[in-house]
Design a protein around this nucleic acid. Structure first.
Lengths: 155, 155
DNA sequence: GTCAAATAGTTACATATGAAACTAATAGTT
DNA sequence: AACTATTAGTTTCATATGTAACTATTTGAC
């Protein structure tokens, strides 16, 4: 007699969203502990530093767009990093609401250390895959991202 | 004259850990809003339901192992779901510390609705990839998970 | 059997996070 | 110019989360 109770079967460990979540958290936590241990930076603060180092004069709103952080998180990360002496804020001369952000010399020092560290960790991670596989992964993640995009018809 | 300031370059949007994090969050949030809207369940509660439905009599500790949740999160999710009338707890007769968890009839009703819904969402998502690509993705994620495993020499 | 160590789970506390309300400045309409 | 709507960013408040301390029970050593 077939088991009619369990019509369909769900194994969490094989469930794609779950696997992605666990993988992503493992990696993020691992890397975050590096930044934190070495420089006392959270993931959010690190993201702000990454984009500000790359685009001096950027605004908080733009940081939010580039980092997928919401504006409250951006605001808090910026405040903390100014406090730490890593960031400097000027008010735009053409728009009094807009802030323009720059790394201080101390901030740039950290940035110069952190970028190779981050790239190294990524390299370490990616090196478990062949070149070909890395490209594949990029492609597949892109497809998934499109499929999961919030401005799609509801599943 | 070459730009000697910016020795190495980091583009956040191409940074693997960042991309994974954004992708995973997008998907999780999307699916979580479904559970929440339909049944008032958080992701954690949903995970507890998923494994308890599959293994009646499971303990809180085992749930933690199967869901990658820490014991506090498990404890809270269980408490809330007992409150909601979806879960029932008995104390093991052979070990007074251990709890044994079961879905109530109401809990099972939700479970029976939620499992196909979850599988459907996964299917929807996965269907943006070919069969071949899905297998690839599994493989690549497995490799990355190994590489990022916490009991590896520090990066 | 008694006592220290380990295990299952909960509670308390401190911090992180997100939504909504708020302030300040600008843009657009009349 | 005056008035409304919009935008940039901050603050407030309520909730979520993680760490550490705690309770209860069991296990293991003697």
């Amino acid at each position: 007699m077939p088991d009619i109770e369990n019509v369909s079967l769900l194994r969490l460990r094989e469930f794609l969203p779950y696997r992605l979540s666990v993988l992503s958290n493992t990696i993020s936590t691992r890397i975050a502990s590096l930044y934190d241990r070495e420089f006392g930076l959270s993931i959010w603060q690190w993201r702000v530093m990454a984009v500000t180092g790359d685009r001096p004069g950027i605004s908080a709103t733009e940081i939010g767009q580039l980092t997928a952080m919401d504006k409250v998180a951006v605001s808090r990360a910026i405040a903390a990093m100014i406090q730490m002496g890593y960031l400097e804020r000027k008010t735009s001369e053409t728009d009094g609401r807009r802030s323009q952000l720059f790394l201080t010399p101390a901030g740039r020092d950290v940035y110069e250390l952190i970028v190779p560290m981050a790239l190294g960790a990524e390299q370490e991670l990616a090196s478990s895959l062949t070149e070909e596989e890395q490209k594949q992964l990029e492609r597949l993640m892109g497809k998934l991202a499109d499929a999961a995009s919030p401005d799609r018809p509801l599943w």
